[in-house]
Design a protein around this nucleic acid. Structure first.
Lengths: 199, 199, 199, 199
DNA sequence: TATGAATGAGTCTTCATTCAT
DNA sequence: CATGAATGAAGACTCATTCAT
């Protein structure tokens, strides 16, 4: 992994992003104010505007940061697995701890952004959409590769199952955050694992 | 169905709720301003505050209105079915048209509220939570009744399946709204129907 | 004392005045809202406006009510005294209990009104002014009568002493309300009594 | 006297305070609106809130400004007198011109604040209270020092006389503002001077 | 006369953004 | 680059008052 050397400007940008990512993911775009940003960073408004065009750009960067954190977590986990089935099973296993510290603070950034940005913030919606489509592609790829390796049945419909995994996981996240009942989380992720085993 | 006679105040309240329910369900609580409310109703701010304690009360009422619309739609559909399996199948069938006019504008109010209110609006979160728990109870009831009637296998775990249905539906709603691809919706609801057939 | 028979309208007016007099004397004219008035009376805004031209008229009536309560208290006390010196001594004696229940709630209405209305409410200022000038006249009358009866020295300047009594009492009220120290009240009223004894 | 160099922020704060101090002292806290403040300063509301936490903080600062103006006036006058009796006599002499331009516009800030804040604004009441208690201490000190120097009788009760001076002055201010009759002012301050001469 | 819903100007405060320094 | 004072529009909410019923 290459370590990029950041100049001062890039470091400040990165600093702002890291500090505000949890806030945007928790309070949402509309709910996060520039005062929240300056309070979280200790910087001035002018400094924020010196490094970002506007609040939108901060929000977009923060979303990307949260998303990247999630993707790295998944990639890292998957890299330690050999079979495609195991790689697929990483998803229910990881989301079992979506409230844990390795996850972005505030929950699944795709879901959070999807719901809020859907009718109000086209740009954010677009990158959330791309993220979920990319996730979908990845799942389809894993399932198809698994089929090639005879880990999964030849009759398993990759497209269908990929969508099902995403929907079930995101629905689970929502259900768990709302009820606060982690038993629901355990039950649903166990259920998903069983379904994947049957692929 | 009884037709309640509403006095002026109640009529205005109801009018405000009906006009703002789609807005709150689309733009969210934080994203909906009092100006949005006055613009949608043609009333003045004073009038809104004459009929509601504050914006919160409008939001809560609007959420309940959207929720009720959804519940009535489900109840109505289920009442036309005889078996419990058929009643259960109403859910994927109905959500197949969640973008249609019979549904609350803006999508599933439970999901929308769940995500936004989660970290910011305890009262809304609480009623959304109650709604989803009540939905869960209803699903468990239908599955157990279906088991009694030998429509479903005796081994089917009602709790587990109920949660799965909710998660899958809500995840589907999110996925569909975000991607704008109704094929995803069709695929997922077909998948859910198949799963229910296997109960 | 004649008991006036009040018709409904007059009774409502009187009811409103009685209920709001303590509020105006405590929170002031600007600080008392129509909502305060309806809350205190249990009446509607329409009802208040049916009986009074506007908030001003309620405020003026309330001030007069408070003032009258004070004047009656003084008159009653003085009527039980024989000499003019004793009548004069009623003032320090009465104001010693200006925080008590016989006094208008909120303190001396003349002082309260004088300070607030001074630069903002000409009409209220005018009646407060009349009240204090009338009080001044009364004091001068008592002192002169006392001089006639040889209760006071012939050299005592009635005008000067009358003003001194008023200023000292009102200053005492202010000082006592602000510091909350009733010892100041006792000390000052004792001092005033001594001064009057020396008239 | 040192001339402090103020930065931009401090200058604006000071500017706002100077411009609003007469308004708060005239119209009172409740009677002074943010629009009054922006009108008097030519600044925007945002600018006011950029320099003060809220209206309260402006009011408190304005009160302190008015109070300080008064205290400086007194201190300056007293510094030119040698004996303690002369220093004490500064009070009636100064208040004789309390309507003049050297005095805070709107009258005695302690009295104005005392009456309005008494039942409605605890923080302002507290600083007004401290101001009057401090004034009282100063008067006691001057009288006791005068006694030491044999300017006053040994039997003169410093505590009692100090309170009397304050009450008489404040009552005089109220009486004068209300009646608009400066003869009352002259009479009462002359009377106070005579009393002090007798200490 | 009494009601109470409606008004619209007003309240204080926060917002995202800009720009001279 | 960074500062932070200033902007002005917008935020939620309250005000005294009116008027059809």
């Amino acid at each position: 992994m290459k370590t990029k050397v950041l100049n001062k400007s890039e470091r400040t940008r990165q600093f702002i992003i890291e500090k505000t990512a949890p806030i945007f993911n928790t309070k949402g775009y509309a709910g996060t104010s520039l005062s929240d940003i300056t309070a979280a960073t200790g910087l001035t408004k002018g400094s924020v505007y010196g490094n970002f065009k506007n609040k939108d750009e901060v929000a977009v960067s923060a979303f990307k940061f949260n998303l990247n954190k999630l993707l790295l977590l998944i990639a890292n986990e998957q890299s330690q697995k050999k079979t495609f089935k195991e790689k697929l099973l990483c998803f229910p296993e990881l989301y079992l701890n979506f409230l844990g510290e390795k996850f972005p603070v505030g929950g699944c950034p795709i879901m959070n952004t999807a719901i809020e940005a859907d009718d109000t913030h086209p740009q954010l919606k677009e990158i959330a959409k791309k993220a979920i489509l990319s996730w979908n592609e990845n799942l389809i790829y894993l399932i198809n590769k698994g089929k090639e390796q005879n880990e999964f049945k030849a009759t398993t419909m990759a497209d269908e199952k990929a969508l099902m995994i995403i929907a079930l996981i995101e629905g689970t996240v929502m259900l768990t955050k709302l009820t606060g009942n982690t038993n629901h989380l355990k039950t649903l992720m166990a259920n998903l694992k069983l379904q994947i085993e049957e692929f």
